[in-house]
Structure formats: C-alpha cells, structure tokens
Simulated scan of single mutants.
Amino acid sequence: MGCKKKFQNHGIESALIRCLQQEVLPRNTIKGVELAWVGDFNDKMLAIHEATGATQDKIHRTYRLVF
C-alpha cells in the first residue's frame, strides 16, 4: 500500500484507512486484514500501520549488495 511519490504527503493513505474504518468495518463482514509488503525502510507506511493499531506478524527485510 502506498502512493507514487508525486501523490505523497496529501493524506491519500490516511484517507484510505479512514474510509475503511467508517465504511467497511461497521459492516462486520471482514474478520481480518493483512497490511503487508511494506519495506522496513518505509517509515511513513510503518507509522500508518502503527496508528491503526495493527499488530506486526512478519518482517520484510530489504538487503542491498553494492559491487
């Protein structure tokens, strides 16, 4: 989850989370959601996940080889 660079810092990710809270969760049709594949380097998205109260189940590490 995330936005292209030119759309970042406009609150789009937060709006998506908020819409889920207001529209989807009250229906009680979804039992769980996986917020996955956010790189360990992506501090902004990790902060959004933390703000939602999500619990961390997996860690996706990013390694770089410089040669």
Score class of each variant (00 low, 15 high):
residue 14 S to K: 10
residue 10 H to N: 13
residue 32 G to M: 06
residue 22 Q to Y: 03
residue 5 K to R: 10
residue 13 E to A: 11
residue 33 V to M: 09
residue 64 R to G: 08
residue 64 R to I: 15
residue 48 I to K: 15
residue 64 R to A: 14
residue 60 H to N: 14
residue 9 N to W: 00
residue 31 K to I: 02
residue 62 T to C: 05
residue 2 G to P: 08
residue 35 L to V: 11
residue 67 F to R: 15
residue 6 K to V: 14
residue 51 A to W: 04
residue 8 Q to F: 01
residue 41 F to C: 02
residue 1 M to T: 12
residue 64 R to V: 14
residue 36 A to G: 14
residue 20 L to N: 06
residue 10 H to P: 00
residue 6 K to I: 13
residue 52 T to G: 06
residue 55 T to G: 08
residue 56 Q to P: 09
residue 40 D to G: 01
residue 58 K to P: 05
residue 10 H to G: 03
residue 17 I to P: 03
residue 3 C to F: 12
residue 4 K to D: 14
residue 32 G to K: 05
residue 20 L to R: 01
residue 16 L to C: 09
residue 21 Q to L: 00
residue 14 S to T: 11
residue 60 H to Y: 15
residue 2 G to M: 06
residue 43 D to G: 05
residue 26 P to I: 03
residue 47 A to F: 02
residue 63 Y to F: 15
residue 26 P to L: 01
residue 64 R to N: 12
residue 20 L to Q: 00
residue 18 R to S: 09
residue 16 L to Y: 02
residue 56 Q to K: 15
residue 26 P to G: 02
residue 15 A to M: 11
residue 3 C to G: 08
residue 45 M to H: 04
residue 22 Q to H: 03
residue 39 G to A: 00
residue 33 V to D: 00
residue 42 N to P: 00
residue 13 E to P: 00
residue 52 T to F: 08
residue 53 G to C: 04
residue 49 H to P: 00
residue 11 G to V: 07
residue 37 W to R: 14
residue 62 T to V: 12
residue 57 D to K: 15
residue 24 V to D: 01
residue 21 Q to P: 00
residue 15 A to C: 06
residue 44 K to D: 10
residue 29 T to P: 00
residue 31 K to C: 08
residue 56 Q to M: 11
residue 43 D to F: 10
residue 29 T to R: 09
residue 9 N to A: 07
residue 14 S to E: 13
residue 13 E to C: 11
residue 42 N to E: 05
residue 30 I to G: 04
residue 34 E to V: 10
residue 9 N to P: 01
residue 24 V to G: 00
residue 67 F to K: 15
residue 49 H to V: 01
residue 3 C to V: 14
residue 47 A to C: 05
residue 49 H to K: 06
residue 25 L to A: 03
residue 58 K to E: 12
residue 30 I to C: 04
residue 35 L to R: 03
residue 12 I to P: 03
residue 48 I to N: 15
residue 4 K to N: 14
residue 45 M to Y: 01
residue 27 R to W: 00
